[in-house]
Design a protein around this nucleic acid. Structure first.
Length: 376
DNA sequence: CAGGTC
DNA sequence: ACTGG
């Protein structure tokens, strides 16, 4: 049943620069449910990082994004603040493009390739704790299963949220205390988490222990992570993140970029690695120059034991290459190339009909063909 | 084989 | 190593 009484608020956003159907489905957030009949997205959101969740709905037309909350008080001010910070609307996307066109003209000047992807040029500022767990689930995994696992996590250990117009119930994203209280490694394995089951339990345990040790038990997990990390230089923040089980350099960087606001971080996964080698001719070999760079990094990382243990220096050099090339918002630039590279499928759940495939249109999209040839 | 990690 | 598409 659809209530039809939702009071929607709106905010001016040109769909050309932020298309939520792209951004919410590209594989950085995993818990938005799309309703194909109403063209709305719905999720449970921890609006101000305290203990209460709102059920938030979003939709968009050419000029506006619309938002509402169907439970609690539909607090306009709270929602408005959250929308602005979640989509980082104060960041001038146009200006970023102008900067990248200057710094990397070869790959940014031809806007006929890039323009259709502007809308995917957005890094969401997500809930830190949820981001950490989501990307622990992401390792060696596909987006549709990651999505499923994130939802399963809420069903197994979150609280059901009373709400009026959803057929299937929605749950809060579980905090560390809930996870160690109601979940075990074997329960998670039985529910399809595979070897990541252990990482999730251990990470939840570690957060509980850290909060206890720091005397910060009253903080939510996300508040604690912010208190602990915010303002730290990247290397220290990464060292802290890498200490969690199941968190390697790639997951740590996703957490820092999308959960902690380190916008200059380029997480190096297989796709970014391929882009680096194919389009930017980053050699995978071992030139003298490269050896020198790695030696320099090793020296720099002596202060960071966990980093030294877990880092892959070749991939770390790729991260630094892109950071130096694209600058303070290099993580955002990476999102564009990531979308161009893989942007054909998403595992987002369609709450009303069936799964929906996301297609990103490019001028010369041979990528689908190219991929098939490569596979064969 | 999938946005890696142990 | 898990596991589903």
């Amino acid at each position: 049943m659809t209530s039809g009484v939702d009071k929607w608020f709106k905010i001016a956003v040109n769909i050309k620069y932020l298309d939520i159907s792209t951004v919410l489905q590209i594989g950085q957030s995993f818990r938005w449910v799309y309703n194909g009949e109403t063209n709305e997205y719905i999720s449970s959101i921890n609006l101000d990082h305290d203990k209460t969740f709102d059920i938030v709905k979003l939709k968009q037309d050419d000029k506006f994004m619309y938002y509402t909350s169907v439970n609690n008080n539909n607090n306009k001010q709270l929602l408005h603040t959250w929308v602005r910070s979640y989509f980082l609307l104060d960041i001038d996307r146009k200006q970023l493009f102008e900067h990248w066109k200057i710094k990397d003209p070869k790959h940014f000047s031809n806007l006929s390739h890039i323009e259709p992807l502007c809308s995917s040029c957005c890094i969401l500022q997500q809930d830190p704790w949820e981001t950490l767990l989501s990307f622990i689930c992401s390792s060696n995994n596909n987006i549709s299963r990651i999505t499923k696992m994130c939802h399963t996590l809420t069903e197994l250990a979150g609280d059901e949220i009373p709400n009026c117009d959803q057929l299937s119930p929605l749950y809060t994203f579980p905090n560390s205390g809930q996870i160690i209280k109601v979940l075990t490694e074997s329960i998670l394995r039985e529910n399809g988490f595979g070897y990541r089951a252990k990482y999730i339990i251990e990470t939840a345990k570690k957060i509980v222990d850290l909060k206890l040790k720091d005397g910060m038990m009253e903080l939510s997990d996300s508040q604690y992570l912010k208190w602990k990390i915010s303002g730290s230089p990247y290397l220290e923040a990464r060292e802290f993140a890498l200490a969690f089980s199941g968190v390697g350099p790639k997951v740590a960087d996703c957490f820092l970029l999308m959960g902690m606001g380190y916008h200059d971080v380029v997480p190096v996964d297989v796709h970014v690695n391929r882009i680096a080698q194919r389009d930017y001719k980053i050699t995978s070999g071992s030139s003298n120059n490269k050896k020198t760079q790695i030696a320099k990094l090793k020296l720099e990382y002596t202060k960071y034991p966990t980093t030294r243990r877990k880092i892959n220096f070749d991939l770390d050099l790729i991260r630094l290459f892109f950071r130096d090339l694209w600058g303070a918002y290099s993580g955002w630039a990476q999102a564009i190339f990531f979308a161009k590279e893989v942007g054909s499928t998403s595992g987002i759940v369609d709450g009303s009909v069936s799964k929906r495939k996301l297609l990103i249109k490019t001028e010369d999209d041979n990528s689908a063909v190219t991929k098939r040839i490569k596979v064969k």
